[in-house]
Nucleic acid binder design. Structure first.
Length: 329
DNA sequence: AAGTTGCTCAACCGCAGGATC
DNA sequence: AGATCCTGCGGTTGAGCAACT
């Protein structure tokens, strides 16, 4: 007996979602919480398959999703993480909780791949012509020095993490950022990201008040999540993420700051901190894999600890050198 | 103004793997 | 233990739009 399709092909609507469908879906999730997608079409009367509902929710309706242009930091993170993890978009997305894997995948395929390709061919041309790209080599040198420093910092962070005084294991340390904050400000993204934002926000606000599923371990986060979505000016200090969570999972952002050489993740108001949205912690917790487990730790360790520079490090280096050498950003 | 080309991104498809019975 | 269910993931598609000719 073969596996039945996730939905009857007959009578299932495809294509873009209408605002009405969005509202139906959101109000259902408001009542029952995300999950049990199989039941969603039946219970809502939506002529959509469960997959489609889940996708619509996770990629579009889920609160806390940031839409619109990617920031430089996000671009850099994507490039770096892609170099490290390959096309594991879900894993990459777990480090950019405000972005969906679909978004990142699209962005990579449409923007970054082209950019990198362009730069690569540019460099090849230069080397073919025997031109010593002085400016490029200069910036490359600068960049490599910066990278050395960053790697050094990252190594220290890693050593700290591995040191016996700190109970936190590296595997935990290297987990994606599944923290949460309550100050995700939907209004900050000028992009209208749902077809009927206001209606849905109102409903979510209702859910926030009457959330029927407090049993979930992350229900508080859920509440906060929707709170922050519904209350655009709720950027209060309440729930401001601290650098250490209950598990002593500290300095993650610092580790990555040093690893990636980003300017500043340290402020809670930074792009990156803002990306630590509660809802994503909730929902991505369900859906996103533990990258710490996925990324072979030994590789990361090797790269960070091996002074000689592991192969991974070299590949990685050559990849990201592209970006800097041509003033990529 | 009309036609063509290129780009973007939401959505779909098929597969894999964990959960459940 | 094996069959089935359910969900998540990555690759791909195609509609809609903008830029160009």
């Amino acid at each position: 007996m073969g596996r039945p399709p996730c939905c009857d092909k007959v009578g299932v609507k495809k294509g873009p979602w209408t605002p009405e469908e969005d509202i139906i879906l959101v109000s259902y999730i408001q009542e029952h919480g995300p999950g049990n997608w199989r039941a969603v079409p039946t219970n809502t009367g939506l002529l959509r398959c469960s997959k489609s509902c889940r996708l619509r929710w996770t990629n579009y309706l889920r609160p806390g999703i940031k839409r619109g242009n990617f920031t430089d930091h996000e671009e850099k993170m994507i490039i770096h993480l892609q170099a490290l993890l390959g096309n594991r978009w879900a894993a990459i997305a777990s480090y950019l909780p405000q972005r969906t894997d679909n978004d990142i995948k699209n962005y990579w395929n449409t923007h970054l791949k082209k950019k990198l390709k362009k730069l690569q061919t540019g460099l090849e041309d230069q080397s073919k012509q025997g031109i010593s790209p002085s400016s490029s080599s200069q910036s490359r040198g600068q960049w490599e020095r910066r990278l050395q420093t960053d790697i050094h910092k990252a190594k220290q962070a890693l050593c700290d993490a591995l040191s016996p005084e700190k109970p936190t294991s590296l595997s935990f340390e290297m987990k994606p950022f599944i923290g949460y904050s309550s100050h995700v400000k939907p209004a900050q993204s000028s992009t209208a990201y749902i077809s009927s934002t206001e209606n849905i926000a109102k409903m979510l606000k209702g859910w926030m008040i009457n959330c029927p599923k407090p049993a979930s371990t992350s229900s508080a986060a859920t509440q906060q999540s929707f709170n922050s979505m519904a209350n655009t000016d709720s950027a209060s200090s309440e729930g401001t993420p601290s650098k250490a969570d209950n598990n002593g999972n500290i300095e993650l952002s610092e580790t990555f700051e040093t690893l990636f050489g980003f300017d500043s993740f340290d402020s809670p108001k930074s792009d990156f901190s803002q990306s630590l949205s509660p809802d994503t912690s909730l929902f991505q917790d369900e859906s996103k894999p533990d990258v710490g487990a996925q990324v072979p730790l030994s590789l990361l360790e090797k790269w960070l600890l091996d002074d000689g520079g592991a192969t991974l490090g070299k590949d990685y280096l050559s990849d990201i050198t592209l970006d800097d050498s041509a003033n990529f950003f």
